[in-house]
Design a protein around this nucleic acid. Structure first.
Lengths: 227, 227
DNA sequence: TCCAAACGAAGCGAATTTATCCGTTTGGAG
DNA sequence: CTCCAAACGGATAAATTCGCTTCGTTTGGA
């Protein structure tokens, strides 16, 4: 292209930095994270954010789509494992560690785009396969459903301790906190294996996770390319 | 008492309502819960809040002290159990369910009063006894420390799903969400029993939980009675 | 050398937040 | 029944924070 990209490379780098910063700030500040904080953390001006996304919501929607891609990838990788249990265990660990509880706080605050809905469906299907395989192999306790596991992932993904240390900038303790959470994950995984007494209550219905994203379903299906 | 309490009963009721509302709103809105929201939820005017607490922080400090009392009570009740494991399990369940993750978000945002520090120490001691007893009985896996359990309680106490449903007023789904969390707790408890492979990494140090409350240690040791 | 594309940050109006002030209600003593 | 201090609730002041726009400056390839 002839005269079309004087500082294109910098723009690309900034876009990447923005997404990473948004994820981090969202995890730390929750749903009320401000665009100023995000831009500052990315080391760019606020205008650079609004040049790529028409609004704060659109940035968050794009971020959700990217995170859903990661979930899908993790599930696919899990399914490629020979050992059904190892595949599921790695999927759970991966989801907890990379999502960092970023998307939970967003639920109900942004509209669900068609793109997000499609990816959510796909992710859900893959995960059900993963769970079914572990059930069939007898590795996963038979009374634990995919919903139980989804909730567990979300529950452990959002770590109050790590978020607070992040907020206070205690970088010296963050490694220790991550190590501690790895142990919590290991405990939960051990609890998911076969050979335990029956779980209490009834299995949670899928509606619990599906309905929480319900919002005002506006259109918004724009891809976040440049203007 | 002669002429000293025209509407004393109502004041007492309001005080109770305020504390309950503050706990709920804190769990739902996080550390940036506003006094207006709290007063509205309690069904009282803002002035009634400031008549009993000189500031928002003082209300939160009082709330922390009360929650610590609950933790202490739960530990004492656990220690009275004949079965060491049952005692520990009930303690964990109770802490998760009544605290509702209210205090986590406060960590680092309010000053620690002497009263809070003393109760924290007491609670810590009791919990160590509880864990030591379960270890001695061989019911609790030997590589799980009191710190692991404290972190697990905090981790599961703060439930993103329940908080969001609360925020959206989906009272129809809240029961289902609580049932689902009970199952998560059961999974974690199963993972804490003896007979599992060794936990990864090294045991987390007590500093992780202690230092997070560090703040500007002002004085503030006033009891929240009337003016 | 040139200039469009991309940049950072000050600034704007709207919306919140903490805390105070003040007119009104209330319930028991006399 | 009368009275009045204690307790009430909500309007409001003052300061902050928010999402977003506007604008003057920098940059790098043709």
């Amino acid at each position: 292209m002839a005269r079309r990209a004087p500082r294109h490379a910098e723009a690309e780098r900034n876009d990447q930095a923005l997404l990473e910063a948004a994820k981090k700030v969202l995890a730390v500040d929750g749903a009320h994270a401000s665009v100023a904080t995000i831009a500052a953390r990315a080391g760019v001006g606020i205008a650079s954010l609004y040049r790529r996304y028409r609004s704060k919501d659109e940035l968050f929607q794009h971020l959700c789509a990217l995170s859903l891609d990661q979930w899908i990838q993790a599930a696919e990788r899990g399914l490629r494992h020979d050992d059904p249990w190892e595949g599921l265990a790695h999927y759970i660990s991966a989801c907890i560690e990379f999502s960092g509880g970023s998307l939970g706080p967003l639920a109900g605050t942004i509209a669900v785009t068609d793109e997000m809905a499609a990816k959510f469906t796909r992710s859900d299907e893959l995960m059900h396969d993963l769970v079914a395989r572990a059930h069939a192999a007898g590795a996963l306790r038979s009374d634990a459903t995919a919903m139980d596991i989804s909730l567990l992932i979300e529950q452990v993904g959002k770590s109050p301790l790590i978020e607070q240390l992040d907020r206070q900038g205690r970088t010296d303790l963050i490694d220790a906190a991550h190590n501690a959470r790895k142990r919590t994950i290991a405990i939960a995984l051990d609890g998911l294996r076969s050979g335990h007494p029956r779980l209490p209550g009834t299995a949670p219905t899928p509606a619990l996770l599906a309905e929480r994203w319900e919002h005002s379903p506006t259109d918004s299906t724009r891809s976040p390319g440049r203007s």
